[in-house]
């Protein structure tokens, strides 16, 4: 599904990613862990198509298409979703209006008519139930005045509505209490199918207790320095990132 080969990325001529290669197949869950400043968010932003990054080398393919040729919205239309680490506020635009616009723009890109209101409302109701969300959410301005946890839950709600092929969760667990974390994990596990894939970016392993990854990659100083099973996450938690630094130094 997603093939990243030897990706080098700079910001203002400072190299951030220094040769990342990663392949995600459908049905898989990958986790990327790493200390602050290792390039985790850069990687997710580059996959999603944020500008201001210079791709100096390497390729990203999604289902055989060259992603680097496509705009952010075209990538979204292909089924790539990013759950933002810091979701933005859009005052005056309700959660319902925003998700309706997003769904219909995605449908438009596929040559489909807008989703009938009845169907949309039904889907919204189901997803809100899944994520234990209150109805009052729907009429609130997008992310405006939301608590950290509410913002993250709203991201997962949008994920569940858009049903992407590849979902990237950028530090979705930060700022979540244990109950919210469980709900988010439940959502992700329910949405998981043999046809889609998840890339979970996190600093801590606690989210991985609830969403069990097939692969764990350790990102350090712009490179994937270690890949393993979920046990790697546990080892990291136990020994800390210094352990990796030592290992890499060898």
């Amino acid at each position: 599904m997603l093939k990243i080969k030897n990706l080098h990325v700079s910001v203002d001529d400072t190299p951030i990613l220094k040769g990342i290669s990663l392949e995600i197949k459908k049905g898989e869950i990958h986790a990327i862990m790493g200390p602050n400043g290792s390039g985790k968010s850069t990687l997710s932003n580059v996959i999603a198509g944020k500008e201001d990054y210079q791709i100096t080398q390497g390729t990203i393919e999604f289902e055989g298409k060259d992603l680097l040729e496509l705009s952010a919205e075209e990538r979204a239309h292909l089924g790539i979703f990013l759950s933002f680490q810091y979701p933005v506020e859009i005052p005056g635009v309700s959660v319902t209006n925003f998700i309706k616009t997003a769904i219909n723009e995605n449908r438009k890109a596929k040559g489909l008519e807008p989703m009938p209101a009845k169907e949309l409302l039904k889907l919204i109701r189901e997803r809100m139930e899944l994520l234990n969300m209150d109805k009052s959410f729907l009429s609130r301005s997008l992310n405006e005045g939301f608590s950290g946890g509410e913002k993250k839950r709203n991201e997962i709600f949008q994920l569940s509505m858009l049903q992407p092929k590849l979902a990237i969760l950028d530090e979705t667990d930060s700022g979540l209490d244990i109950d919210a974390l469980r709900i988010v994990a439940k959502g992700v596990n329910t949405l998981r199918t043999p046809e889609n894939a998840f890339l979970i970016i996190t600093h801590y392993q606690r989210l991985l207790e609830y969403i069990v990854p097939d692969f764990v990659h350790v990102l350090y100083n712009g490179k994937i320095v270690k890949t393993g099973s979920k046990d790697l996450a546990l080892a990291l938690e136990e020994k800390g990132y210094d352990w990796i630094k030592e290992e890499v130094a060898i």
Binding site: A72, A76, F84, F98, T101, A102, Q158
Partner: peptide, 10 residues
């Protein structure tokens, strides 16, 4: 960018 990422053109 947030809107673009959700498939909404600029």
């Amino acid at each position: 960018f947030y809107c673009n990422q959700r498939g909404i053109p600029t």
